[in-house]
Design a protein around this nucleic acid. Structure first.
Lengths: 246, 246
DNA sequence: ACTAATAAGTGGCACTATCCCACTCAACAG
DNA sequence: CTGTTGAGTGGGATAGTGCCACTTATTAGT
């Protein structure tokens, strides 16, 4: 950033928040975590559902991402999710209280051991199911949150085409059919089994768990785990890596 | 965003800025626009080069993007660039004056009719050449701007693999060899002519200009123009669009 | 004029990832 | 033992790309 030296402290600062689009796969559906706005008079959008989020605590949060992690932890107890910045949205009109900027993050977490914790202001938190193939919930959300959710879903869908993202929606150990199903749920369309397996296995993003196999109704399936949970990998080829190096 | 109702006006708000990574192709190189920080005492990073940017003017700018466009216009006179949000960077330490958040945009503009205009505070503005294949300038910049520049270059490179972005670095009318060269400059590697042409033409992102042809030293080349300058197109295939729809 | 040089533009074959379909394999139910 | 179901494999058809050789259009030089 660069400061305009004529105005060391600008007369009016926009206020800054962090909002989270927390997604998981539950009940064979993609679901998003929402919180209910307090019904208190004076509050904007009372009683409406909204994305979880809030102010940056300049005393507590060292960085924007820290702030997002803290809020996620407070709401779900999840410590190490897949967390990515979606973008920031700022305007004079998006919040009736004044010029505001929100930094939106989206998190992918597995549906295991999640205990929803009401926030300090006793929010009601709940999972909402996203219709397959849709990029919205078909209902109003507070502020511009419906648009933020749509942006997150579009980003997720487009990244899924060429990354291993859906693995973060599953428990640490999963089978290939489960992973395939996660792709299908996110993409909203069927995926061909044989091509899917080759693609995923050739990309070497997951590794077989030696002797383990899960007992189910039918033939047991091989279990896998993400190779490097920190970095998500990219498949597909693109422009022509060529053979002359680059 | 969601406001914590216990604190309607938080005690301390971070300050918010917008910074720009303005790129063009000049002199057969990718170049970035930088401004020099004032040498005034009390200013952070006096005399160092920085990305152009500054505070949001809550009275003038309706949205973040408006703010970015305004600053670009003020610096270069360019009205309709390719403009994309890169992300936001916020922390307690990135600016010595306090907790700050910057919204970084990157703009691609053609090198035609650009008159660099010194900012209101008489900044010195200049184009800096980025070494081919590099993601930095090899010198210090003010604040965390070196990191922001690197992020912008990485984003540009990765998007170039599957989009028509480099067309925005050229004048409205260009030849295929010129476009190919722009790709090569951005990617930092050579691109095969025949494959490049097929790829670009098949993607139908550019259209032939009927009878025009440019007079050069050798055989004249066909001129093209972007089909839809608003939306950039994506090539490449990805996960399996299949034929069952989706 | 004719020829050489240079860059624009075209065409074809090999390679490879995907699509799609058929097949085998391992467990369970009756 | 047989049928059913879902896991896992294999192969031919298709399509985008890498690579390379070829043709075309123009200028410079003799």
């Amino acid at each position: 950033m660069t400061m305009d030296r004529r105005v060391l402290v600008p007369i009016e600062r926009p206020f800054v928040t962090v909002d989270l689009v927390i997604l998981t796969v539950r009940n064979d559906r993609l679901e998003v975590l929402l919180v209910r706005r307090p019904a208190t008079t004076g509050e904007p959008y009372p009683g409406l559902w909204a994305l979880p989020g809030g102010f940056i605590d300049v005393g507590q949060d060292a960085t924007l991402e820290d702030c997002a992690r803290r809020k996620l932890r407070e709401k779900t107890g999840v410590e190490s999710p897949y967390l990515e910045q979606l973008g920031s949205y700022g305007s004079a009109s998006r919040d009736p209280r004044g010029w505001s900027v929100t930094q939106v993050y989206f998190a992918l977490i597995p549906d295991e051991g999640i205990a929803l914790r009401p926030g300090g202001n006793a929010d009601t938190a709940a999972w909402w199911s996203i219709p397959e193939g849709s990029t919205n919930l078909g209902m109003d959300l507070a502020f511009d949150h419906a648009a933020l959710l749509t942006a997150a879903l579009e980003r997720l869908r487009s990244k899924v085409e060429y990354t291993s993202l859906p693995a973060f929606l599953l428990p640490r150990e999963f089978t290939l059919p489960e992973l395939q199903r996660a792709y299908e749920i996110v993409l909203g369309r069927e995926v061909e089994k044989s091509a899917f397996r080759r693609r995923v296995l050739d990309a070497e993003v997951i590794r077989k768990i030696p002797k383990k196999t899960r007992l189910t109704e039918r033939r047991p399936a091989q279990l896998y785990r993400l190779k490097d949970e920190a970095n998500l990998k990219t498949f597909a080829r693109a422009f022509g890596q060529g053979k002359r190096g680059g």
